[in-house]
Design a protein around this nucleic acid. Structure first.
Lengths: 324, 324
DNA sequence: CGCCCTTGATTTATCGATTAATCAAATCTG
DNA sequence: CAGATTTGATTAATCGATAAATCAAGGGCG
């Protein structure tokens, strides 16, 4: 690896001049600056991040902490965060907290010891990781006071429900994946807010009890709203096995737009998160925090987008307008 | 942050002694070593990785390069790599190559500039990224000469096929997801090797043409083998829509054991990769390369494991033994 | 013409840890 | 007991870049 010294020696100038020329700081004549730039190029010179980090106290690295890297959203978030970070000149170090709360603390600790300049955290269910003296962007849900930026899950739930209401549905089954998840609770809350005045609904949590679709359908339910594509897939399967046509007899709505939604038939209608935008906001927030101390607006809620595909349709004529 | 100097000053010794005491190198009396350790603990001291990196030339960081972070296997691989790396004392920096070959080079370049000590690469389809002067572990497939460690995809394909042969199936439909993928080609090859002497098969690639299941079933096919759970899900859906019972009329086998396999009904039989083991081998390989120059055995093939669930069963009696 | 200011570049200290070289005191040896 | 060795610790250099302080030379001005 070539160093700043090497260039300096080659050109008979001091290393400080090289540093100045390359960084644009200090005073260097355009002529020598150009000579230095050319030589640096020839040598394929790249400054040692390590040396710079030691001197400036900035590593140029951000940490990404997720409760569980196998979270279905992780791939997209990691990709978006990495892309946004790269654009901003940062690298991304990952840390898995293996699902446990203690490990979340350990993961943060590890990243901190590696000298990251900031943290992007998707908090572990029900925890509020406090990280002192380190810029941190929390991606969770607007109802979490610690939230920095996230999708507006409540609004997403409302949109999903409204879309089906607009199609003419009046009786709904809402199925959450995990009742301990604040995100999923917000989604359900959003759905309810849209339905409560115009229709009937019942809530199930699949980690507690999975509903009997036939019974529900017999009771008049024409649409199933879920908090995850994975749950929606299960609903689709159960419906098929029970002989309930989707979307003919039952409309099914997913959440998160996972790849499986395009593989299943009918393709899943779902609600998509703008992960790219969330990542960009998180990174620029961190960047502001790192580079100045100027306060930043907190609690950005990014709108979610409805993706209508084949699993939702108008309710069957026989059921239209029928309640309970 | 407390430094080695601070401890030294506190205890009236030199910083070199502190360094020696903490690292166990050099000569330090047990008495002072203990005093130093205690004080270090009190101060919550952690050596600056950056300073150490600058002096030793080792960053303690590995880079993880994947062609596309949205690859369904990425979450598990990232998690396993992170876990194994952490155990070995390394951090993991991620780099997405956004699906393009040029970006793969750029991603590697970025990591190198950040001073990573080694690279774990899942190569972009059809490329052989050459990384000079940097320990690199390639995770691909045993038929790739550049492969360091990976699942034995051919053997996995063979196992999947054999399981169905053992159940009594004789006529197969093999569906790959992408014919440009060497991994998927190996899986198909493995399936064929098991089938060719005892049964009949036909190959389709879903990026080219998705087969008509009814036509196949009419022609005697009783089992569908795929190279991915995503493709298997599509098959399951098509079968349902065509009124072909799974597994009664048609057995369906997936690959990779994605989360969706447990959500769909019937649950997907599939072939599981031992990602944990692959990651551990990759990391220990890198560690050996980094810490010594001693050559290491290359091309480890990790066996895959069959996971039989509800989507596979004996062929229907009417079809047993029937060919074509 | 002498003084001040600007310009272009150099010196030097520093970030925090590691490590080779060195040194003083204690211990061993024949 | 003198000389050699061991032990425990210190000095000092270094990794590569940055940045404050310094300095020499040239230009402008009254």
């Amino acid at each position: 690896m070539s160093s700043i010294k090497e260039i300096a020696a080659d050109l008979g100038v001091s290393s400080a001049t090289v540093s100045n020329a390359l960084s644009g700081k200090g005073r260097v004549s355009e002529a020598t600056a150009e000579r230095i730039r050319i030589r640096a190029n020839e040598l394929g010179f790249h400054p040692s991040m390590t040396a710079r980090a030691l001197k400036t106290g900035r590593s140029g690295i951000l940490g990404l902490v997720m409760p569980d890297l196998t979270n279905p959203l992780f791939p997209r978030l990691a990709q978006s965060v990495e892309t946004a970070a790269t654009k901003a000149g940062y690298g991304v170090l990952i840390a898995d907290s293996r699902g446990s709360v203690e490990d979340q603390g350990a993961a943060i600790q590890r990243l901190r010891q590696r000298g990251v300049d900031g943290l992007v955290i998707v908090p572990h269910r029900g925890t509020r990781p406090l990280v002192k003296a380190l810029p941190t962007a929390v991606i969770h849900t607007p109802t979490d006071p610690a939230n920095t930026v996230s999708s507006d899950h409540t609004d997403g739930g409302r949109k999903a429900a409204q879309a089906l209401i607009d199609l003419g549905h009046k009786s709904f089954l809402l199925i959450g994946g995990d009742n301990s998840s604040q995100v999923q609770n917000d989604r359900i809350r959003g759905m309810i807010s849209a339905i409560k005045d115009v229709g009937h609904y019942q809530v199930f949590w699949s980690n507690v009890e999975f509903p009997d679709l036939v019974k529900s359908a017999d009771a008049g339910v024409t649409a199933v709203l879920t908090t995850s594509d994975l749950v929606a897939l299960r609903v689709l399967s159960d419906a098929h096995q029970s002989g309930l046509d989707v979307p003919g007899r039952l409309s099914v709505m997913g959440f998160d737009d996972l790849p499986l939604g395009m593989a299943v038939r009918p393709m899943l209608s779902t609600v998509e998160q703008n992960v790219t935008q969330i990542a960009e906001i998180a990174i620029s927030f961190l960047q502001a925090k790192i580079e100045s101390t100027e306060p930043e607006a907190e609690g950005v809620a990014v709108k979610m987008k409805l993706v209508m595909r084949g699993s939702t349709a108008k309710p069957p004529p026989s059921q239209q307008g029928e309640l309970k």
